[in-house]
Computed example of a mutant assay.
Amino acid sequence: MPTLSVQAKPDDAASWTALARRVEATGYAALLAADHPGAVASPFVALAAAAPVTERIALGTNVAQAGVREPLLLASDVATLDVVSGGRARLGLGAGHTPAEWRMLGRERPGAAARVRRLIAVAEACRTLLDGGEVTAYGPGLEAFGARLTVPEPVRRPIPLAVGGGNAALLRWAGEHADIVALTGLGRTLADGYSHEVRWSGAQIDRQVALIEEASARRETPPEREALVQHAEVTDDAERAAHALADRIGATAAEILASPYVWLGTVDEIAAATAAHARRWGITRYVVREEHLDAADRLLAHLNKPCSEKS
């Protein structure tokens, strides 16, 4: 059975803590927060607020913006979250894509290769710091001088690391080092600085998974594979819904119906699709955005039924 988590952002204290309680009570694995500095609430403050009203679920970023966050401060935030949640923190990292997030700091967004190098440097530094080590690094991607995280010490070591994206170099590194590789289905950032091309065809996902498998071949425990669900809809007419989405998303209806990034159909059909994705691509984890929580609740309830009760 796949593992389901929820990505959300707070609008006010009451609805955020209510959501955290709902995510835990319904049986999701984690509550995750996005990170777009200046455009959404601070993920670590939000997740720390969710900690005292939950007991079981993991709490993490999906994903922290490695392009503009310094690893010592990032590691301190993660360690603090782990302390206040009793060992439930998860660090999710991405290379960043929104030009405004750099411009507001007086910089220009680097090219894709430089952003991936920065992500790798930040991920390695954070992991070393969270494991109690010292970081000294010189280079265009990162500078640190005897950095150590003395206080607070995380409750759990190692803290799970998820790396999200679709760049080939990123996937190779994640396959070799991450605990979770988070596939987004997103390609090149479009001119508006926010939207993306999609990479949803089976052949494109095959290539990405092959990179992960090749990189993780020597690992005793390979990383888990997770997909970000961009749309979820329980319907008796999946084909019609796919055609309605096709022009807006930039993928064919056939690609949408076969994609792990969209859930369309009855709960039986969606459950069957997740089983097919596990067989073909090894995807066993999904992240669903809050706006699709009702559909995800129905799928989770179906998945948790005894086999004798499933239609």
Rank of each mutant, 00 (worst) to 15 (best):
R172N: 01
A246I: 08
S259M: 06
A232G: 06
L142D: 12
R188I: 02
G146D: 14
N167D: 15
A215S: 09
V209Q: 02
L183T: 00
G164H: 04
A168P: 15
W200Q: 12
L190E: 15
G165A: 01
V234Q: 03
V155H: 07
E176A: 14
G202K: 01
L142Y: 15
P223M: 04
L171V: 01
D237P: 06
R248D: 12
N167P: 14
D247H: 04
N167A: 13
H177L: 10
D247C: 09
A251F: 00
E224M: 14
A251N: 07
A227W: 02
A217L: 07
A251Y: 02
A227D: 01
R148C: 12
R172Q: 07
L245F: 00
V234L: 07
N167V: 11
H231R: 11
L142K: 06
A210Q: 07
L186D: 03
D236C: 07
V155A: 08
P260C: 10
A174L: 05
E255T: 06
V151N: 13
R218M: 09
D192L: 11
G187R: 09
P154W: 01
A258Q: 02
E213H: 08
T184W: 02
R219Y: 02
V229W: 05
S195F: 03
E143R: 13
G185C: 08
A169H: 14
Q204E: 15
V198H: 01
A178K: 01
T235M: 02
T184V: 03
L211A: 06
A168Q: 11
S201N: 12
D179V: 04
Y194W: 15
G165Y: 02
R219Q: 04
A147Y: 08
R219V: 06
R157T: 12
T189G: 08
P160K: 07
T221D: 09
L149E: 08
H196W: 10
P158H: 11
H243K: 13
H243E: 10
A242W: 01
E153V: 15
T235I: 05
S195H: 01
G166D: 03
A227T: 00
W173F: 12
I249T: 08
G141L: 14
R219E: 02
L228K: 04
S259H: 04
V155S: 11
R207Q: 13
V229D: 05
V229L: 06
A227R: 03
P160W: 07
V155W: 00
I212R: 02
R148I: 11
R148F: 05
